[in-house]
Amino acid sequence: MAPDPAMPAQIVCTGLGKTFGGGTEAVQALDLTLAAGQTTALVGPSGCGKSTLLRMIAGLEEPSFGTVTIGGAPPSETLRHAGLSVAFQDPSLLPWRSVRGNIELALRLARRPVDVAAVEALIALVGLDGFGDTKPAELSGGMRQRAAIARALATKPGLLLLDEPFGAVDELTRQQLAQDLPRIWEAQRTTTVLVTHSVSEAVLLSDRVIVLSPRPAQIVADIDIPLPRPRSPDMVRSDAGAGHIDAVFAALSESRAGSPPPMAAQ
């Protein structure tokens, strides 16, 4: 019996490491368990290997050491059932397909039936009402990111991987997306891993923030964010939220102080 790809799954990384061809160590001996249905943010300095970690969880990158399991099985098994979605730093929409076409392509690639009404509801959910037939080139950067998030949600994956999905948009759009996302989140709860540079974004969106060291990535701090949901940016700015933000910042600076400067780490 195949596992239900829509079921939120627990992720276990054991002794996970990645060394690239040139001898660069991106991730070193990492042990991490992510509970089913939780949202976890991975934060750390640029180039610290968080994207590599995400790609190993997604099964897009083979680990050099150790293992990843999703719901007890290797990622390749989850891929086979199209049980996960990735939203990349670049929206990666196919330029010759409309917003709707891009979302439908995800469903077809995942061998899921295309439910027209569900696709429309999804387009509405990310605030792209009326833009279903628009090609990506005619959308703003923020709208493209929303379309990419809608596509990632379309297959109702048990595991959602977001690799700096707001990396390429300007600050205002970023804040808007961060405001909208919690609302979208409540609608579809899955196990979610979010890679981000923004500490406030991490605190706003996650149940748990993992702070990583500069390359090779190791866990420096593991901070729970027990703020109630639904959340809002105001809540993050409140005393309770600010406390969490301070904790993450402290861990980040500590991680940097205790290791070689970022230039040398590149």
């Binding site: 990349f88 990666s92 690639l109 995942a110």
Partner: peptide, 26 residues
């Protein structure tokens, strides 16, 4: 085509033929 388009195809568990049909051909 950018590498992420191929990652996208792979992330739905599909291989080179799907990449050819849906990404490379166009």
């Amino acid at each position: 085509a950018p590498a992420t388009w191929f990652d996208l195809v792979r992330s739905y568990g599909r291989g080179r033929v799907s990449a050819l049909v849906h990404v490379r051909a166009m």
